[in-house]
Amino acid sequence: MIENAPTLTIDNASGGAAQTVVASGIWQVHALAQCGAIKKISAMLKSLDNTPGIEWDLTSIMSIDHIGAQMFWNAWGKKRPAALKLAPRQEALFARLESANELKLPRSRRSHLTWVMVLGFSILSFIEHVHGFVRLIGQVVQDIWRFIRHPMTGPWREVSANIFHSGFQALGITALVGFLIGVVLSYLSAQQLRMFGGDMYIVNILGMSVIRELGPLLAAILVAGRSGSSITAQLGVMRVTEELDAMLVMGISHGYRLIMPKVIALAISMPLLVVWTDAMALLGGMASAMVELNLSPRYFIQKLPDAVPLVNYTIGLLKGATFGVLIALVSCHFGLRIKPNTESLGRGTTTSVVTAITVVILADAVYAIIFSGVGF
């Protein structure tokens, strides 16, 4: 038996129905946890739950903490019993337990118009984004016109830095993905063409699919995931660290120094990345065709200009420039809308990448409709 162990004693001195429960010892967590005292006391308190007219005397307790007080409070049904004796130092502890009301969650009221409200808020949010995006386009157009009128004071360093980060540093990943896509497309096409004896048409399939569609689309998706997220995160961090506010205080325009250089850089970098991705994809397809169909690289290179008219190459470059501008605008739009907290930064970056890829695919579909009869 440990010294000053928590104990409960039932005193029935009068012999009647009224009983007095006397608590003594140390009712703190370290004492309750020793020798299994907490289990015995909990069982004893539970047996006293439904006993009528019981009196409680806690004045003999040497010290008590929140754990010990909570055991009594639970045994009393979370309300103070009618007959209770407490020491003055215990009053504050049980007063806090008494004032801590049980948390009541608001009852959810489901309405038949809930889906209408959700749809309405979604439409309003979409209109707000479209309005902000159109304003951003107008601001960029004004900044570009200012840049053309005063080229000597333009942000040349920012444009050069963004071309390096968005274009040059993306050469590795675009080359790898383009080469592998070319290998896969050539391998699958060769298996089907061999069945019909159309081995020579592998050049037509690879040339048209890569130069006209896959090359620009692959480069745009990779740039949207890599550079688009970087642009949004950069502007978001500047919002969190209040650098954007500091620029406004110093009279520096966000659009002229931050947004316009990124738009110009991606408009220049994306067509070059499209050319690079096309070349890598065609090299991968040529290597796969050489292995699967025994087509020499010389035959592949000679047949490529005849299989793919030059206008398809022009369409691919035009797609690249358009995709670059759209990625930069979408990334900057969501970057400027980030609130000064870390949760908004992560959510805004994710939304920016998803929206940029979706906009790129929609733009590619528009190009497919407009130039449906060109280049065949």
Rank of each mutant, 00 (worst) to 15 (best):
I370R: 00
V130R: 09
G68V: 04
K39Q: 14
S227K: 05
F133C: 11
S60K: 07
S14F: 05
I137V: 15
I221V: 08
S60F: 00
Q28S: 07
Q302S: 11
A87V: 05
H112R: 01
R347W: 03
C35E: 15
V325I: 15
V330G: 00
R80I: 07
L362H: 06
P106A: 10
T51G: 01
Q90K: 04
H66L: 01
G77P: 00
F300D: 04
T20Q: 04
F371T: 09
P151T: 12
Q90G: 02
V134D: 13
W156T: 13
A220V: 04
M247S: 02
A43C: 05
T277H: 04
A100G: 03
N312M: 07
A328V: 03
A289F: 03
T114C: 00
A190C: 04
N4G: 03
V118M: 01
R149F: 04
L8S: 04
Q234H: 13
G182Q: 14
L217P: 03
S344T: 10
A307H: 09
I231H: 07
V140A: 15
R257V: 12
A307M: 15
V223M: 05
A23T: 08
A356E: 07
L97H: 07
R149Q: 12
L206T: 12
L222S: 01
N4I: 02
L193S: 05
G53A: 02
S166D: 08
E158Y: 04
L119C: 14
V210S: 09
Q234P: 05
S352Q: 05
M44T: 11
I315T: 07
A175K: 08
M200R: 12
V330C: 01
G316P: 05
F72H: 10
V291Q: 11
M117D: 12
A5G: 13
P81T: 12
K39P: 06
L317T: 08
Q139H: 14
A287P: 06
V177D: 06
A365S: 07
A328I: 10
F72E: 03
T114K: 12
G316V: 06
